[in-house]
């Protein structure tokens, strides 16, 4: 299987602080990688660099082997069409209805006619088990779990090659969080895409990951299959998984 996405030696400095200091990750098609790590360790920045929302100071972002950081804008935009993203707060557009949010890319980027886009949006709502009765309401009227489902539907409607999840279960009750985890696993399998997620929810990481990588101090300090998480032999991973305040990682309070 080929590498769908590779981050090679990514460095990023923000406000004088070296947030990423040579991050190397890769994910193959049909594989799910979860990046874990404490708050402020650069998980979101890693994801933003991969998505092209931030330009790294150094390093390469390779999509199907092509370095997107050095591409002309219009070619890069074409490559970015392979991506789908579920944001932490779902990031649904307040001014649009739920179906318009889900079909946003079809309508405005792919020029699909609105009736067809609506039909596909409703079909995708069913896939993520969000009732089509909510198609014409505004996102503000949805619960947190429903917003995540709508965000997931929006991310998958164009059948991306690589899916990104930013803290997909944050702010959800355990049952809803588990349902979202199940959906993520189901959708990534159904689409056959690669998935990269960031989370500090270990239950979520164990459920959706084939592999887990730990980011600390701007570097990947451990990476391995999900099954080996409890026998990683890495003191930082052990501390993080156990959720202990004492250990090599200093709690930021």
């Amino acid at each position: 299987m080929a590498e769908k996405l590779q981050l090679v030696g990514i460095k990023k400095m923000l406000r004088g602080r070296q947030v990423l200091d040579g991050v190397d990750i890769d994910v193959r098609e049909r594989r799910s990688l979860v990046i874990i790590g404490g708050s402020g360790q650069g998980k979101s920045v890693t994801l933003k660099c991969a998505l092209g929302l931030m330009k790294p100071n150094a390093g390469q972002v390779l999509v199907d082997g092509a370095d997107v950081t050095r591409m002309p804008e219009e070619i890069r935009a074409r490559v970015m069409r392979k991506f789908g993203m579920l944001f932490q707060g779902a990031a649904l557009f307040d001014s649009l209805t739920v179906w318009e949010n889900i079909a946003f890319r079809l309508i405005y980027a792919d020029n699909v006619a609105r009736p067809e886009a609506r039909e596909r949006a409703i079909e995708t709502m069913r896939k993520v088990r969000l009732s089509p009765d909510f198609a014409d309401v505004r996102p503000i009227e949805l619960s947190g779990g429903m917003q995540k489902r709508a965000g997931l539907a929006r991310a998958i409607i164009a059948k991306p090659d690589i899916l990104f999840f930013d803290e997909p279960t944050t702010g959800l009750d355990p049952i809803t969080a588990d349902a979202i985890n199940d959906l993520i696993v189901e959708m990534t399998k159904e689409l056959g895409c690669a998935a990269v997620s960031i989370t500090h929810d270990m239950a979520s990481a164990r459920k959706i990951a084939d592999e887990i990588a730990m980011l600390h101090g701007g570097k990947i300090v451990w990476r391995g299959p999900t099954a080996s998480l409890d026998s990683s032999g890495n003191a930082m991973v052990e501390q993080f998984v156990a959720g202990r305040a004492d250990g090599p990682i200093q709690a930021v309070v």
Binding site: L51, M85, F87, A91, F93
Partner: peptide
Amino acid sequence: VTEQIDAMTTLSTD
């Protein structure tokens, strides 16, 4: 601040 602009970019819309 609610990442809607980032979301728009990921949806291939400038």
